[in-house]
């Protein structure tokens, strides 16, 4: 992500998308007539998308000499977290074990 021009394109794009995602979340929460669970799922997903967007657009995780390492680290951390949390819930709430 080497930018030659002085104009901070990625910041502007990132800012623009962050605004859109935030307003979508507001709209879903206030105006859409769906159940509480669905609202939580939608705005939760939007939050994760926005966090990822900001990491790339504002925090420049892919740039610098450790760029690749950062991305691998984060992907691995997400993988481990999902395995531990979602895995444990799945294992402990299915079948006889939960009853």
């Amino acid at each position: 992500m080497e930018h030659k021009s002085k104009y901070p394109v990625s910041h502007v794009v990132g800012f623009f998308f962050s605004l859109i995602l935030t307003f979508v979340a507001v709209f879903v929460a206030l105006k859409m007539n769906v159940s509480y669970t669905i609202v939580m799922w939608i705005i939760g997903s939007l939050a994760v998308v926005q966090a990822g967007l900001q990491l790339f657009m504002f925090m420049h995780v892919t740039e610098g000499e450790d760029g690749k390492t950062n991305v691998i680290n984060m992907a691995y951390a997400v993988f481990v977290a999902i395995v531990i949390v979602a895995g444990s819930i799945w294992v402990l709430t299915s079948g006889h074990a939960a009853h």
């Binding site: 481990v80 395995v83 895995g87 799945w90 294992v91 299915s94 079948g95 006889h96 074990a97």
Partner: peptide
């Protein structure tokens, strides 16, 4: 290695999918 741990307690009977 991170996604095999349940094989130590299959007999806990966590359900066929698990």
């Amino acid at each position: 290695s991170m996604i095999v741990w349940v094989h130590h307690f299959y007999t806990m009977d966590a359900g066929p999918a698990v």
